[in-house]
Amino acid sequence: MSSLTYPSHADPRRTLLASALIGIGCMAAVDEIIFHQLLAWHHFVDRDTAFALASDGVLHAIELVLLVVGFFMMIELHGAGRQAPGYRGPGFLLGAGGFQVFDGVVDHKILRLHQVRYVDDLWLYDIAWIGFGVVVLAIGWLLLRRARRGHAASQR
Results as ranks from 00 to 15, higher is better:
Ala40Pro: 01
Ala54Thr: 07
Asp121Gly: 00
Val116His: 03
Gly57Tyr: 10
Asp11Gly: 08
Gln83Met: 14
Asp121Ala: 09
Met73Arg: 07
Ile22Lys: 03
Pro12Gln: 07
Arg148Ala: 12
Val135Asp: 03
Ser3Glu: 12
Ile130Thr: 11
Tyr125Glu: 14
Gln155His: 10
Leu143Met: 14
Gly81Tyr: 10
Ala61Cys: 03
Gln37His: 09
Glu76Asp: 12
Gly104Arg: 02
Phe51Tyr: 13
Leu93Met: 10
Ile75Glu: 14
Arg82Met: 10
Phe92Asn: 03
Thr49Met: 14
Arg117Tyr: 05
Ala61Gln: 01
Phe71Met: 14
Ile139His: 11
His36Pro: 05
Val119Cys: 00
Arg145Lys: 14
Glu32Pro: 00
Ala84Leu: 03
Gly86Val: 04
Gly86Ser: 02
Val106Tyr: 03
Ala50Pro: 00
Asp107Trp: 01
Leu124Ile: 01
Asp46Ala: 14
Leu93Glu: 02
Val105Asp: 07
Val101Asp: 09
Ala40Lys: 09
Gly98His: 00
Arg112Thr: 11
Ala18Trp: 05
Ala61Leu: 10
Phe51Cys: 04
Arg148Met: 12
Arg47Asn: 06
Asp121Pro: 00
Leu21Phe: 15
Thr15Met: 08
Lys109Asn: 13
Glu63Arg: 04
Glu32Arg: 10
Glu32Gln: 15
Gln115Phe: 08
Ile110Lys: 02
Asp46Arg: 04
Leu59Lys: 01
Asp48Pro: 02
Ala18Leu: 07
Gln100Glu: 11
His108Met: 03
Asp121Leu: 01
Gln37Met: 07
Leu59Phe: 15
Ser2Lys: 00
Ala18Asn: 04
Gln155Met: 14
Glu76Ala: 15
Pro7Thr: 07
Pro7Asp: 09
Gly98Arg: 04
Val68Tyr: 05
Ile33Tyr: 15
Asp120Pro: 06
Arg156Thr: 15
Ile130Gly: 02
Ala50Met: 10
Leu4Asp: 12
Leu4Pro: 00
Ala128Lys: 14
Gly86Met: 01
Ala152Cys: 01
Ile34Cys: 10
Phe99Asn: 02
Ala138Asp: 09
Ile22His: 01
Ile130Met: 13
Ile127Met: 12
Ala138Lys: 07
Val69Arg: 11
Leu64Glu: 02
His114Phe: 05
Ala80Met: 10
Ile139Arg: 07
Asp120Arg: 02
Arg82Gln: 12
Ile139Pro: 05
Pro12Gly: 12
Arg13His: 11
Arg82Leu: 11
Val65His: 08
Leu17Gly: 02
Trp41Phe: 13
Gly57Cys: 10
Gly98Ile: 06
Val101His: 08
Leu53Gly: 12
Ala147Lys: 04
Glu63Leu: 07
Glu32Lys: 05
Asp56Ser: 04
Gly79Phe: 11
Leu66Val: 00
Leu39Ala: 13
Pro90Met: 06
